[in-house]
Design a protein around this nucleic acid. Structure first.
Length: 254
DNA sequence: ATGGCCTCGGTTCGAGGA
């Protein structure tokens, strides 16, 4: 089973790329973030025509998440039941015995902002909900845009980024608390090259200069981590015309 | 160079992203 996550930065703009990517990478499950579209405008027919079932939770202009699956989805849940949130940032479904949670963690803007405090509260509530979910589901995968680079190895220039949003200690501590629920960062289960990232700013020719961060992650419960044989970042779509600033991450479960 | 880009909504700019 292959599980993937991709922040597409507008599904309306990126739908052709998503369909192309699925043709090239026929994963079983693809979690999308920043669909930026209301549910009535979601391109379900086009995705279904490509052989995927779809569950989505969107809003106008901002946020929005979706799960694309080759297999039926059960017990679909939108948002964290422990956290009242106007923003559509979570959708979950059980697929082939795996609880798949697709998350778009708030960006936080800057460490002194209200948005940052919202981010930390949001992550705390996510931890609480995951604790309950893990008691119910042995096989659980949390995929998405975490907007956190967990360690300096995930940052192109740790000195430049020190203390900044996406990298700050409270955010990293929140990420570690998720790992403390016995969730494993699939990417770090394997030996990886240095300076592999999942996001690059549109400005400053950041992609060409590999000025990136690894902020898109797949966390796996112990039973899934034991069956995980690979986790890779696919840089290719970042080289396409009019790309998302994020690129897909894929985990293989045997 | 305390900024550069992309998307959206909806107008010709501001908000938000990261």
């Amino acid at each position: 089973m292959k599980l993937a996550t991709w922040n597409v930065n507008s599904l309306k703009v990126r739908l052709p790329q998503v369909l192309q990517w699925l043709t090239d990478n026929p994963v079983d499950v693809l979690c999308l973030q920043e669909t930026k579209t209301t549910d009535d405008k979601f391109p379900a027919a086009e995705i279904e025509a490509a052989g995927y079932q779809v569950a989505f939770s969107g809003q106008k202009t901002y946020n929005g998440v979706a799960i694309l699956s080759k297999y039926p989805m059960h017990d679909v849940v939108r948002n964290n039941p422990l956290f009242a949130d106007e923003q559509q940032r979570i959708i979950a479904a059980t697929i082939e015995g795996v609880r798949v949670i697709c998350a778009y963690v708030p960006n936080g803007q800057s460490v002194d902002s209200d948005k940052y405090r919202y981010k930390l509260k949001w992550l705390e509530a996510l931890e609480q909900w995951l604790t309950a979910e893990l008691k119910i589901h042995q096989n659980l995968a949390l995929l998405g845009d975490y907007n956190i680079a967990p360690a300096d190895a995930d940052v192109h220039d740790p000195v430049l980024w020190q203390g900044q949003v996406l990298v700050s200690e409270p955010e990293r501590a929140a990420f570690q608390r998720l790992c403390g629920l016995n969730l494993a960062d699939a990417f770090r289960l394997f030996e990886q090259s240095e300076k592999l990232f999942s996001w690059w700013d549109y400005r400053q020719m950041a992609f060409r200069r590999n000025m990136g961060l690894r902020i898109d992650h797949i966390l796996l419960s112990p039973s899934l981590a034991a069956r995980c044989t690979a986790c890779v970042i696919d840089k290719l779509p970042r080289k396409w015309e009019q790309p998302s600033d994020h690129t897909p991450v894929i985990a293989t479960i045997e």
